[in-house]
């Protein structure tokens, strides 16, 4: 579905992608794991054409997103849905209008059809009945579900999730996990999840990739990742503060640093 090839990207002297190549399979849930600053969010943005990498290609449906013009990217985006970390609902519109927004923009469906579609989408995320509330009246978990309903309203082939469970309580996270799986199984939506939530990744992923400072250090099924003997992967899975992935930012020796100053 989406194939990233030899992707390189740098912001100043921070490398966000170092010759990354990977494949996101159709109708599968792929979780891209990584700590903060690992480059996973940048990679996600580049996959949807919100940013351009320094070099390399990202093939989506046989087209290279990194070299498309605005119009062609907009055409492709109608096949993509995205759930933003903060849901990104329009706070001046109520829930109904938020979800109806892409329909009103890109289709000429009548009001009654739009109403039906929104009922179906809200039922899918278990929130039928909140149509007339404003985003500010809903909890974090609920706005995420509304954001998801909006992301799937045009029936996309691929849905991107940016940190879908961050900032949610365990139950709300569980709900989001279940929704991601439901959409994937029932509608056959290709799902690409960027996350640092390892528990959630093990629950939903068909395939997990771990990104570490711009390098793809592991790739495999949840079982393979769990049983990996790579120390970096082990540290990530176990969540230990120090290990091959260092606790401190600088590699200068602490004693030396103090003494020289």
């Amino acid at each position: 579905m989406i194939r990233v090839e030899n992707l390189n990207n740098k912001f100043g002297h921070i490398t966000t992608a170092n010759n990354v190549s990977c494949h996101f399979e159709e109708k599968k849930v792929t979780v891209l794991l990584g700590g903060s600053g690992s480059g996973k969010s940048t990679l996600l943005k580049q996959m949807v054409g919100l940013g351009r990498p320094d070099s390399g290609s990202i093939m989506f449906d046989g087209k290279d997103i990194t070299s498309l013009g605005r119009k062609e990217i907009y055409e492709l985006r109608k096949k993509m849905g995205m759930l933003f970390q903060g849901s990104a609902l329009f706070n001046s519109l109520n829930i109904f209008e938020n979800i109806a927004f892409p329909l009103r923009e890109h289709t000429s469906l009548s009001d009654s059809v739009i109403k039906t579609i929104i009922k179906i989408k809200l039922e899918m995320v278990g929130l039928r009945g909140v149509e007339h509330m404003m985003p500010s009246q809903l909890s974090g978990g609920m706005t995420k579900r509304v954001g998801l309903a909006r992301a799937i309203v045009l029936d996309p082939k691929v849905v991107f999730y940016d940190e879908p469970t961050s900032g949610l309580d365990p139950i709300a996270s569980g709900v989001i996990d279940k929704l991601i799986l439901d959409l994937n199984k029932k509608l056959g939506v290709t799902s690409i999840v960027v996350s640092h939530d390892i528990e959630s990744a093990f629950r939903i992923a068909d395939k997990i990739m771990i990104l570490f400072y711009g390098n793809l250090i592991a790739e495999g099924t949840p079982e393979e990742i769990k049983n990996s003997s790579d120390p970096k992967v082990r540290q990530f899975v176990e969540g230990s503060p120090d290990g091959p992935i260092p606790f401190t930012l600088t590699d200068k020796d602490f004693i030396e640093d103090i003494l020289i100053d």
């Binding site: 985006r77 706070n91 923009e105």
Partner: peptide
């Protein structure tokens, strides 16, 4: 609040 990139993602 990511509403600008959200518009982009909705092809607007």
């Amino acid at each position: 609040t990511d509403q600008v990139p959200a518009l982009e993602m909705m092809a607007i």
